[in-house]
Design a protein around this nucleic acid. Structure first.
Length: 257
DNA sequence: AGAACCGCCTGCTTGC
DNA sequence: TGCAAGCAGGCGGTTC
């Protein structure tokens, strides 16, 4: 699933590829994708990441917002050959961006403005002190909080599990019961885990591929996600899987208190 | 307020 | 082998 590191990988690759190019046309292949405003003729100025959203800024003042949800991928092709499960194409001078998505959850919209998320961005303006003030007394469980996009942007199920494992915090701990040093640990580990994943160009356990169709390397770094029954690399105890808010949570019962 | 659950989707795995 | 049920889950919504 594309989370912050995967989306960041795409944004970096797009930033090297499309600014300065002009949009020749766009084609929608999936009726589920809503109609959007005209983007033809506009030139790409920049590509930014907002949480898990890709924002392509145009010189027309509009911004194309792409959210990949579960199985969405973006593919750069210099030919017009349509990949399997192509849902949308942005034709630029010199190449095409295809949105590929077997499960059809991904969304594309054209907005007037780029969403503002800087205060929720771990690599942006997010401030630990302020974060603890806002969320440090809540009754919600820490894993749900890490995945709450309105609290902190970009973390999904895979990285939430991995972060808490490396931080030694049990996913069912109540946010309000965490100490200052717990928070320190969690937010520091969040940075470390996500940075590593970005450097590895994302986690390819199933669908994820980068802009050029290549797998990432971060799946080799995973210590708990998808590893029920496997020995914890730190202590050797069997990784457990529970269900939290209807999604799989993996953790080590010895390392995570 | 927070958790549980649903609907949106379809490729893949599992079980009979 | 073949088919159907079950599973995966981000997000927005509803319900309890």
């Amino acid at each position: 699933m594309p989370e912050l590191p995967e989306v960041e990988t795409l944004c970096r690759q797009l930033r090297k590829t499309i600014p300065g190019r002009t949009i020749l046309k766009d084609e929608v292949y999936d009726s589920k994708l809503s109609r959007f405003k005209e983007v033809r003729g506009a030139k790409v100025l920049d590509v930014r990441r907002r949480g898990k959203t890709i924002a392509i800024e145009l010189d027309s003042g509009r911004t194309i917002l792409i959210h990949l949800r579960m199985t969405g991928r973006l593919l750069w092709r210099t030919t017009s050959e349509k990949p399997q499960y192509a849902r949308w194409k942005l034709a630029l001078d010199g190449g095409n961006i295809f949105l590929v998505d077997p499960r059809r959850f991904a969304t594309v919209q054209v907005a007037a403005e780029c969403p503002k998320t800087a205060e929720r961005e771990i690599f942006g303006d997010l401030d630990i002190k302020k974060f603890i003030e806002l969320h440090g007394r809540r009754k919600t469980r820490i894993k749900s909080l890490l995945m709450d996009q309105k609290a902190i942007s970009g973390i999904g199920n895979i990285y939430a599990c991995e972060i808490l494992h490396r931080a030694g915090i049990h996913p069912e701990r109540e946010a309000g019961a965490l100490t200052g040093s717990d928070w320190e640990k969690i937010l520091q580990t969040t940075k470390t885990v996500l940075k590593k994943a970005i450097a590895n160009r994302g986690t390819s356990i199933s669908d994820w591929r980068d802009l050029y169709g290549r797998k990432g390397d971060n799946q080799h770094e995973l210590t708990v996600y998808g590893k029920e029954g496997v020995a914890c690399p730190f202590c050797g105890v069997s990784i457990r899987r529970i269900r939290q808010s209807n999604r799989g949570t993996y953790f080590c019962p010895r390392c995570q208190k």
